[in-house]
């Protein structure tokens, strides 16, 4: 029977996987360096509008985030389907914005407070009424530097 399982002379040697950890570590280090930790888990739909006259927000520690939009499908039963504000992983009312800004300010060094920027991450389908209310609250606590966070692209893409 030996003629059936005769060993072939040209058998390929197994590929060495010894360098696999090195490759994976390289990827790992790339991701560790190039990314930042996710801050908030979004509970709302957040499809940002598009604009091209944009400035980058460089210093992440000087930015306060206010999210707004319709609650995502998981939360629709409890939060309704009207646009809501989200602050720090929680749904919030318009009145809570003031307290949020003051709390954020209290956690920063005093000399940095004038440089604090509020980033408004608002879903494109939100009514301006809600945004106007947020802006009014921000004006009341003198948080005047704002940034409408957008994606990069032509402004005309907002209507597709």
């Amino acid at each position: 029977m030996s003629k059936f399982n005769k060993k072939k002379s040209g058998d390929l040697p197994a590929i060495s996987t010894a360098s696999l950890p090195d490759i994976v570590f390289m990827l790992l280090f790339f991701f560790m360096v190039a990314t930042v930790m996710r801050q908030n888990t979004l509970m709302i739909e957040n499809k940002l509008p598009v604009a091209d006259q944009i400035e980058k927000l460089d210093k992440k520690d000087l930015v306060m985030y206010i999210y707004a939009g319709k609650p995502s499908s998981r939360y629709r039963a409890s939060a309704g389907n009207q646009a809501r504000i989200q602050l720090n992983d929680k749904f919030a009312a318009v009145e809570d914005v003031k307290a949020f800004i003051l709390a954020e300010r209290a956690g920063k060094r005093e000399e940095l407070i004038p440089f604090l920027t509020t980033a408004l991450k608002v879903d494109g389908q939100t009514n301006m009424g809600l945004v106007g209310d947020i802006k009014k609250e921000l004006r009341e606590v003198q948080a005047l530097k704002i940034n409408y966070t957008t994606r990069t692209g032509s402004a005309m893409d907002n209507f597709n």
Partner: peptide
């Protein structure tokens, strides 16, 4: 983690 950097239209609100 997220890779995106935030960018947007910067504005200044008028004081109340």
């Amino acid at each position: 983690t997220t890779i995106e950097t935030d960018s947007g239209i910067s504005r200044k609100l008028p004081p109340l």
